[in-house]
């Protein structure tokens, strides 16, 4: 452009004049900003990203902040907490364990969530393999049935299940003593695995169906069975999907209220989960809000650790999953 103008000096000067004239037009800061964003839309996108990100962070993290403020406020001074605690009492985080065996509840929840996740991943993998990679009559109706079951309100299952779990079976006697599942992890692992299974099946079906057929054929010719190919080739290559299904199941079971509240008598030695522990700070005459808050924060820690670890796996799975062809 400038080269062309240099061949004719007169014209260059007029151009400069016109430009400077335009630039001198009266423009407010808003107009300048609009002008700039049209020329440089990346800036706006970045700004929008920050606005959205900050919004999400505030809505998700501010309750945590408040929980922390409540936990730090000494007992009986809970009025008017906005941004700072009324007083400073970090001892609540120790008191939590002194009042009741809270660590026991956390352990129970952790065991129940882990067991459910393992059950869901194993059965979900087999189902996902069948739905994702095999052709068989009735596949679509069956998949829809799984979907329909996931729409049922879990409460609908409660009464029959509660009845069932309170029935004594002779073959369970060596394991549970009285032959019933009530007050054992089984009373929560069984229904919760079933409830969160459909989601896992859908996630795993999608991932397993995307592994090229050739890889499975290669594994089978090389010497695995179909099941062997699933565990040696398809699952490792679907690591992000397995991690996603696993994390979602773990968090859902760990957070679950309904069955966790009703399938035990609330004692830690009867496998009562975390939730019962938090409720245990609620006495007949007083509610220890600051301990409940502290307990909630402690209860979140295992999930937070899991998510951080699994996130790394998910990311590494995504980058290593060079599934061309």
């Amino acid at each position: 452009m400038s080269d062309r103008h240099r061949t004719d000096g007169g014209e260059t000067r007029t151009d400069v004049l016109t430009e400077s004239h335009e630039a001198e037009l009266d423009r407010g800061p808003f107009q300048r900003w609009v002008d700039d964003s049209i020329k440089n839309p990346q800036k706006v996108y970045r700004a929008m990203f920050y606005v959205a990100a900050i919004f999400f962070l505030v809505t998700t993290l501010f309750p945590f902040y408040w929980l922390l403020m409540v936990a730090l406020t000494p007992e009986g001074q809970l009025q008017d907490i906005i941004f700072t605690p009324n007083g400073f009492n970090p001892g609540a985080f120790v008191e939590v364990f002194q009042t009741i065996p809270f660590h026991w509840y956390v352990f129970n929840s952790f065991v129940i969530a882990t067991a459910s996740t393992i059950v869901v991943l194993i059965i979900g993998s087999l189902a996902g393999y069948a739905f994702g990679r095999l052709e068989f009559p009735g596949k679509v109706p069956l998949l829809l049935l799984v979907l329909v079951i996931s729409f049922f309100p879990p409460a609908a299952f409660f009464i029959p299940l509660n009845d069932l779990f309170n029935t004594s079976f002779f073959f369970l006697e060596p394991i549970t003593g009285d032959g019933t599942l009530y007050n054992t992890p089984g009373a929560m692992v069984l229904p919760l695995s079933a409830i969160f299974m459909p989601l896992a099946i859908f996630i795993l079906t999608t991932f397993y169906s995307q592994i090229p057929e050739g890889l499975e054929d290669a594994a089978r010719v090389e010497g695995t069975t179909r099941l062997g190919a699933l565990f040696r080739v398809i699952i490792p290559l679907s690591a992000p999907g397995v991690a996603t299904a696993g994390v979602l199941t773990f968090i859902a079971v760990y957070n679950e209220f309904f069955f966790s509240f009703l399938m035990t008598d609330g004692q830690p030695e009867s496998w009562a989960p975390l939730l019962e522990g938090i409720i245990a700070y609620q006495g007949q005459y007083e509610v220890l809000y600051h301990l409940m808050a502290a307990a909630s924060i402690i209860g979140v820690i295992p999930v937070a650790i899991l998510v951080i670890v699994a996130q790394e796996k998910i990311v590494s799975g995504l980058t290593a999953g060079a599934l061309k062809e």
Binding site: G214, D217, A218, A219, V221, E222, T224, P236, E325
Partner: peptide
């Protein structure tokens, strides 16, 4: 018989190397 019991080996059109294994593990898989 299942493929693994037939004493056959196969090279596939899309090559079908296991992407999560290095060359040594791929070759030694069987």
């Amino acid at each position: 018989l299942a493929p693994k019991d037939r004493g056959v080996a196969m090279v596939f059109q899309n090559i079908a190397l296991f992407p999560h294994m290095d060359v040594y593990d791929n070759i030694s898989f069987g």
